[in-house]
Amino acid sequence: MRAVLRTVDRVLLGLVGLVLLALGGAVLAVGLGASPPTWWLHDGPHDVLLGEAERTRWRDAGWWWPVVIAALAVLLLLALWWLVAVVRRRRLAEVLVDTGDGEGAVLRGRALEGVLTQEAGRLDGVERAKVRLTGRRHAPSTRIRLLLAPHVDPGTALHELTTGALAHARDSAHLAALPAEVRLHGVRHRPERVG
């Protein structure tokens, strides 16, 4: 399903890009003095895209502006829906696990994220952990954010994370590798007045 959605995204983006490139290139060519075909929207470099008659034709019709605004609103909502759908798919939904019998199994991505988050959150000095799986089903990777207490050495926390939580996840899912992008942040406390 994800492969189909990815293909549809690429095809739609390609078509929209080609149409915009062709229209923009044609308008630029006519503006620079190229002779347009007979069916083209305007006749030469000094012609306007919408003449006064075309702009004012529907001014007195009561239905015109509500229809234009509704169509533009629908286009905007579709574009926003598409953008949200593309952004939300960055999270890996499932991971393929080699079971050793030649068949394989599928592990839910959120389950692996949850286990990694819990194990990383139990490390000494980690106030909060957030894990997100990215990559592909057969080659997942992780993005981890750790909020560290002020007394924690970042190198030690990173070493414990890689030898602990990440190694356990990699071994339990029988993955050859589990690359990780780790961002470490320190807890900031508000200064308090001592009276």
Score class of each variant (00 low, 15 high):
117 T>M: 03
154 P>D: 04
145 R>F: 09
88 R>W: 15
100 G>Y: 14
122 R>A: 07
154 P>E: 00
83 L>E: 15
104 G>Y: 08
116 L>R: 02
103 E>I: 11
125 G>T: 07
136 R>E: 15
122 R>Q: 11
105 A>F: 14
104 G>H: 05
109 G>F: 11
109 G>S: 12
141 S>V: 08
89 R>T: 07
146 L>M: 12
122 R>Y: 07
124 D>T: 06
134 T>N: 10
96 L>R: 15
110 R>K: 10
118 Q>F: 10
120 A>N: 05
124 D>P: 02
133 L>E: 05
136 R>M: 10
120 A>F: 01
122 R>E: 11
114 G>C: 07
83 L>M: 13
154 P>M: 06
125 G>H: 05
115 V>C: 06
140 P>L: 07
155 G>F: 04
91 R>M: 06
148 L>K: 02
128 R>H: 15
120 A>M: 05
132 R>M: 06
104 G>S: 04
88 R>S: 13
138 H>S: 13
82 W>D: 07
116 L>A: 06
104 G>A: 01
82 W>L: 11
110 R>S: 14
135 G>C: 08
95 V>G: 02
104 G>D: 09
129 A>I: 01
143 R>N: 10
88 R>V: 13
98 D>Q: 13
99 T>V: 11
117 T>P: 00
87 V>G: 03
148 L>C: 06
118 Q>T: 13
144 I>L: 14
149 A>V: 06
106 V>Y: 08
116 L>S: 00
124 D>C: 03
84 V>P: 00
148 L>G: 02
139 A>Q: 09
145 R>Y: 10
119 E>I: 04
145 R>Q: 12
85 A>R: 12
86 V>A: 12
84 V>C: 08
136 R>V: 09
142 T>Q: 10
115 V>Y: 05
93 A>D: 14
102 G>R: 11
97 V>G: 04
114 G>P: 11
101 D>W: 09
121 G>S: 15
126 V>G: 05
106 V>F: 07
115 V>A: 06
91 R>Q: 12
133 L>D: 00
112 L>R: 00
154 P>A: 06
112 L>K: 05
151 H>Y: 14
93 A>K: 08
144 I>A: 02
141 S>A: 15
98 D>M: 11
129 A>P: 04
116 L>H: 02
115 V>G: 03
98 D>S: 13
92 L>A: 00
119 E>H: 14
